[in-house]
Design a protein around this nucleic acid. Structure first.
Length: 596
RNA sequence: CGGGCUAUGGCGCAGCUUGGUAGCGCGCCUGACUGGGGGUCAGGAGGUCGCAGGUUCAAAUCCUGUUAGCCCGACCA
């Protein structure tokens, strides 16, 4: 097909839109691929739609290749199925809800687990019908607190979501790995580097889960990888627990004046001044910071807990939320936040900024058996025999040389802090380094949670009802477009890989004279006949510079210039990505472009 | 949810302190010149200044309220 720029619905912008921060957002708007309709909601223009269609085609082919079948659900759904699985409530403010004229509740679907489950329940009832893999490519709606970065995190976005239905766990495994393989192929074909990383499966109730992250500095997810090939989301990394240390010869602790040291930095500086080490310097990791958190149970009740973690680490509230409920024996979904002054008003012993667990076992402040009774959990690195600088529970004083196990105890350990560059990989494959990535896909073994909630059962070979086991698998399609724009651009504009570009060749006419335009139009038709998608810049009276700049901004991989060389039977072929250009005889151009 | 900033033609911005009826660049339209890197000149079209209320003879400008957007944060012992 030939699209003529003289009539194509397109307007390129010379300046970056003011609300765009990242390159993909700026360039997709400037080059006329998308327009913002509302925060996190975008309109697709002709060029953008072509890229989107090509990405979708690749996704479809690979899904079909593993035997998945395409269906299409409405995005507008009734409340009821989501009520059954409790997600109407659990999804909270992230869900777009609306009412019809009879005041009945509807929602714009954030994902479709319920609907797929019900559809299979509707049509199938025998183990002989399984396995079945179903997918759709469809709009999803999530009322993000902070949509950002254009297409990267939108409130309306296109996702390929698929679901597998199996009679047993072995089948689920097979479905999972089939999808895993398909995803690796999809991203390879798209030209998007991805790293499969272990993810936390807990929240969705499943057992096995991996995210496919595209490494990039603007990514919103942080993950770690080791030289030996370990890769995990930071929330899923487990700590390598050090060996206990013999403290038989450890000196007694001492309490020292450390005025004006409310933060770890000031404390470390003070420590190096008043009690310098013979070899080296005190560092943040020699301190034990004690963070008071409030855990809010489903009934809204607030439970205090103190976490003791090395001073160079940050408590990650998400990690805490995932596990603290179990640790404190609180059922249901909990929320965690920093304790407020109100929370602490009944604990005059707690001196903010100078909190410590104990000054010897006969003077214990924290822990379920202590005077405060506040549970005290520690990072797994706090093992018996480690020594710490920590608060002495008196303003302006810290205790030095407090030995874990000798001078203080704890109620349990918890994975609650961030991973740091250089931490060992849990599988012994070397030191971890942190990287940022965009989540391009996610695969989950859901297990029987949804099937049970929605009563999806089939008869097995013994004529008994069995609950079906499920997997769910997603690819962010619009996000892939953004990630590709992010990965393939330079200072002049976009530079698409051939397989997703909005066209295969961009023909530019420069100079005046009807013979130039005629030659270009003929060339465009020839390209079309050779099976190529063509963009023809036939806009009259525009200077060559404007057309060249637009061609580079739009980013079609091959640019053919019909201009001053035509008198000698030559046109220029430019490679958008490499910048390489050469003169080619007019009758050789089609072969040159389609052959390379 | 907290903090900061912003809201003026399609895009990017000035004007606001000190009220007087809106301006610049890009883009768009007409014509001429130019014709291989966002060219030049001349002439045009296009804005109830986010919304509501108030003060005033007069409000983009001052006051009150409200809505929306963008960025940052959402634990610091």
């Amino acid at each position: 097909m030939v699209s003529k720029l003289s009539t194509l619905f397109l307007r390129t912008l010379r300046e970056d839109p003011v609300d765009a921060e990242v390159a993909s957002h700026k360039l997709l708007v400037r080059a006329g691929y998308i327009r913002r309709a509302a925060p996190g909601i975008y309109t697709w223009l002709p060029l953008g739609l072509k890229v989107l269609a090509r990405v979708e085609a690749i996704v479809r082919e690979e899904m079909n290749a593993i035997g998945a079948q395409e269906v299409h659900f409405p995005a507008l759904l009734p409340r009821e199925p989501y009520e059954t699985t409790n997600r109407w409530t659990e999804y909270g403010e992230g869900l777009f809800r609306l009412k019809d004229r009879k005041d009945a509740d509807y929602l714009l679907a954030p994902t479709h687990e319920e609907m797929f489950t019900l559809l299979v329940k509707d049509l199938y009832n025998s183990y002989k019908d399984l396995p079945v893999y179903l997918y759709q490519i469809q709009n999803k709606y999530r009322d993000e607190a902070r949509p950002r970065a254009g297409l990267l995190r939108g409130r309306e976005f296109i996702m390929k979501d698929s679901y597998s239905f199996n009679i047993d766990d072995a089948g689920l495994d097979e479905a999972y790995y089939a999808h895993r393989g398909a995803y690796l192929k999809i991203f390879e074909r798209l030209g998007l580097e991805v790293v499969p990383v272990f993810a936390q499966a807990g929240a969705m109730g499943g057992s096995k889960s991996e995210e496919f992250l595209h490494p990039t500095a603007i990514g919103e997810d942080t993950f770690v990888r080791s030289p030996g090939g370990y890769a995990a989301n930071v929330e899923a990394v487990t700590t390598v627990v050090p060996e206990d240390i013999d403290y038989a010869n450890a000196p007694a602790f001492e309490v020292l004046d450390t005025p004006d040291t409310p933060t770890i930095d000031t404390l470390v500086a003070a420590a190096n001044e008043i009690r310098p080490l013979e070899d080296g310097q005190w560092a943040a990791e020699d301190t034990l910071k004690n963070v008071v958190l409030a855990v809010i149970d489903p009934a809204g009740e607030r439970h205090l807990v103190v976490l003791g973690v090395p001073g160079n680490r940050q408590v990650d509230l998400k990690r805490v939320e995932a596990t603290i409920g179990t640790a404190l024996e609180i059922g249901g979904e909990v929320q965690v936040e920093a304790a407020t002054a109100e929370d602490l008003k009944n604990y005059p012993q707690i001196v903010t900024g100078y909190l410590g667990p104990a000054l010897g076992l006969d003077n214990v402040l924290l822990g379920t058996e202590s005077v405060t009774g506040i549970p005290y959990l520690v990072d797994p690195r706090v093992v018996s025999g480690t020594t710490w600088i920590t608060g002495a529970n008196e303003a302006g004083k810290h205790v030095f040389g407090l030995v874990a196990g000798r001078d203080f105890g704890w109620d349990g350990t918890i994975e609650c802090v961030n991973v740091l560059e250089g931490d060992p990989a849990p599988d012994g494959s070397g030191p971890l380094r942190t990287e940022r990535g965009i989540e391009m896909g996610h695969i989950f073994q859901l297990g029987r949670k949804y099937a049970e909630a929605l009563d999806l059962k089939v008869l097995d070979s013994n004529g008994k009802l069995q609950v079906v086991t499920m997997g769910s698998y997603g690819v962010g399609v619009t996000r892939a477009v953004a990630a590709l724009a992010e990965a393939y651009h330079d200072e002049k504009g976009l530079s698409w890989p051939a397989q997703v570009a909005p066209a295969d060749v961009h023909v530019v006419v420069t100079g005046k004279g009807p013979e130039l335009l005629e030659a270009a139009e003929k060339l465009a038709t020839d390209f079309e006949a050779a099976g190529l998608e063509v963009l023809l810049d036939d806009r009259p009276k525009l200077s060559a510079g404007v057309k060249f700049s637009d061609a580079e901004l739009i980013g079609v991989p091959k640019i053919v210039v019909v201009g001053r060389g035509l008198a000698d039977g030559l046109v220029e072929v430019k490679d958008r990505a490499t910048g390489e250009r050469k003169d080619v005889a007019v009758d050789q151009v089609v072969a040159e472009v389609s052959g390379s």
